[in-house]
Nucleic acid binder design. Structure first.
Ligand code: FES
Ligand code: FES
Lengths: 149, 149
DNA sequence: GCTAAAGTGGACCGAAATGGTACGGTTTTC
DNA sequence: GAAAACCGTACCATTTCGGTCCACTTTAGC
């Protein structure tokens, strides 16, 4: 269905909660409460976010998690990459040598272009944007097309 | 990894082969040969493409498949939708009522905006574009960002 | 009509990803 | 030293994905 995993979705939710807390350190527990998620789940995705450097962790009593950067400096693309690895729409296009048909495949290059465009789209939305309520719908300007073909 | 399935990738390959053949009717076998794929696989995805109306099928001896529309009138988005169903980046955002947290979830609306932007990106690339060799890389114009936030 | 070529629908299966959970270990504060 | 909290890893049930197969129907041509 061309989707990100549910974990990734949850990760954005948790990140917004963390962003709202500013520089406060929140434990996995209160994070779970505020995000309305299970603790083990939150815990799991937090680990990945820490690993990616988007979140800082503190151990011991009164430990917890704190956002690693300003919400305006974190893009949705980074969260997606942290959770799912590199963005690539097709198996083949991410690394060469995997697909037998690579040589006679006319579409590989074009998929790579599409990948890039989508990655850029994701990269252009910041965590701060995700915190705001969705604004009034504005039509997508068509210069995007120019970028792809 | 935020990707379309391999079947979808193959579908674009088969579609380009079909597009190159113009109005000729090609059997699943020759389609498989030209696309360098297995017959059952080609057969399977052809079924879905027929169902979606992107390809016409003819039964009986000398039957086969023919492209349903001009390559300029078929978008990558249509192929993706034919193979994987509606484009929705998050499970939650496609249909309401599935997710328990929907009420207190601040990011739902924003994900829907992102979905739309990506769908538009996919819709703006035609099958004809996929047939052409990837052109010189041009930078993606940033008006895209304006469309998202 | 009969037969062979070709598509149609559905079932099936093994492998992998997803999601959720659990547990033992380590770090830090009090 | 005890409790709070994170860390790593492993485990499991379920679903999805990629791929294959087969029994059936349709059509062209002899
Ligand atoms: S490179 Fe694998 S199908 Fe095109
Ligand atoms: S609606 Fe399901 S997590 Fe936001």
């Amino acid at each position: 269905m061309l989707r990100v995993s549910k974990l990734t979705d949850y990760a954005t939710v948790v990140m917004t909660v963390l962003a709202e807390a500013g520089t406060d350190v929140l434990s996995a527990q209160v994070l779970a409460e505020r995000a309305r998620l299970e603790i083990p789940t939150v815990s799991k995705l937090l680990k990945q976010l820490v690993h990616a450097g988007l979140v800082e962790s503190f151990r011991g009593v009164n430990g917890g998690y704190r956002i690693g950067r300003a919400p305006t400096a974190i893009s949705v693309a980074e969260i997606v990459v942290a959770m799912e690895g590199p963005i690539g729409m097709t198996e083949c296009s991410v690394h060469s040598g995997l697909c037998d048909h690579e040589n006679h495949c006319g579409v590989r290059g074009n998929w790579q272009r599409i990948n890039q465009a989508i990655a850029d789209a994701l990269a252009s939305v910041t965590l701060a944007d995700m915190m705001k309520p969705p604004g009034p719908k504005r039509p997508i300007p068509t210069p995007l097309r120019v970028a792809l073909v």
